[in-house]
Amino acid sequence: MSAVYIRPTALAASPQSEEGEAIRLAGGMVYASRFAVIVRDSAEDGGRVVSRTRCGVEAMPDVLGALPDDLAAEAEAQWGNLTLAHPPLEMGARTVRMDQPQVVGILNVTPDSFSDGGAFMDDPDAMRTQAAAMCEGGAAMIDIGGESTRPDAREVWEGDEIARVVPAVETVSGMGAAISVDTRKVGVMEAALQAGAHVVNDVSALRHDPRALEFVADRGVPVILMHAPGDGPNPHEDADYGNVVLDVFDGLKERRDAALAAGIAAGRILLDPGIGFGKSLAENLALINALPLFHALGHPLMLGVSRKRMIGALSNEARAHERLGGSIALAMKGMEAGYQLLRVHDVAETVQARNVWRGLRDAALTDFAELPG
């Protein structure tokens, strides 16, 4: 069966800069005025792009109306999803708004994470200091992980992962922060939620542990479904893309549909294109340039690009701790694409960049106020 995709291709700082011919992406601070409506064959027929129609807002009804009947309903749903405003994430006394970019701080309690492995696992004081700095720096959420998912990392026994994660969750919970737990295992999810976590962040999109879909549905907590090609010990394995952008879109759509079928509420699902997971440098760059497309799936979006290997590849092999500039540049791409959550190591610096970006966006709404009509 053929598939259709609506990709925003021209973004604007305000609707008046396009004389009203722009839509507000996902109820946020980014507007889109031009789009590509893409149709491609099914995977069985080669997955080739067979048509690409470019249009503006005014012409979109005609373009959608000309699609074959088997694609029209999906295209209409995607067009509606692009403008779907997402309510705040309500987590007890904690609320994270989805109408502007929010910064999520990374707290790894592992010995072997690519950037800060070992720094916070065996030193509770250092972990507490880092968590407090991220909270004070403006993090809307802290993402705590006890298993490295870098390429070739060894899988961690569930009991060891729980022993790493739970003390960190308890510490951060005492600071009043919203917390997500970065894990693929139901036992770790359950222990972390009992310790005070609020969100499950699964790099396998609930594929690795066969109990995960049912568990998350039963607990009713928000879940972040990330794209990665492998569902075994190594999430980077089994990558085989014909068109990485459209294949990742299809992969996230399939996992979103599986979550819905399992009883997870649509309003509790967030998506992440999985930059760096089983993707080459060229494929990562293609995905980043296509970030706005994923709003067509109709859920809040997370972008995790902080200190990643692609930055080093583009910067004379800069080491992980030397990648702040590249991390900020990619976070800005996420802001420009309307992403709601930015997962980063350098919280205060990213929050400052976000605040300046937001000031520019607020000012853009009045840029044309004094021009003659």
Rank of each mutant, 00 (worst) to 15 (best):
V4D: 01
I6P: 00
R7A: 03
M29T: 13
S33Q: 15
I38P: 01
A43P: 10
A43E: 15
G47E: 09
A59W: 06
D62N: 14
P68D: 11
A72M: 14
A75V: 05
A93Q: 12
I106V: 14
L107I: 08
P111V: 07
D122Y: 05
P124G: 09
D125V: 14
T129D: 14
Q130E: 13
A132V: 09
G138A: 08
I144M: 04
R150V: 10
P151S: 08
A153K: 08
E158Y: 08
E161S: 11
V165N: 04
D182W: 06
K185Y: 10
V188H: 09
A192T: 10
R207K: 07
D209V: 11
A212I: 08
V216Q: 04
D218Y: 08
F249H: 14
D257L: 11
A258N: 14
A259C: 14
G263N: 14
G267R: 10
L270Y: 03
P273Y: 03
G278E: 02
S280L: 03
N284V: 02
L293M: 08
H295R: 08
G298P: 05
G298S: 07
L301V: 08
G304S: 11
N316C: 13
R319F: 10
R319M: 13
R323Y: 11
R323H: 12
L324S: 05
Y339I: 01
L342V: 01
H345G: 04
V351M: 01
Q352K: 00
N355F: 00
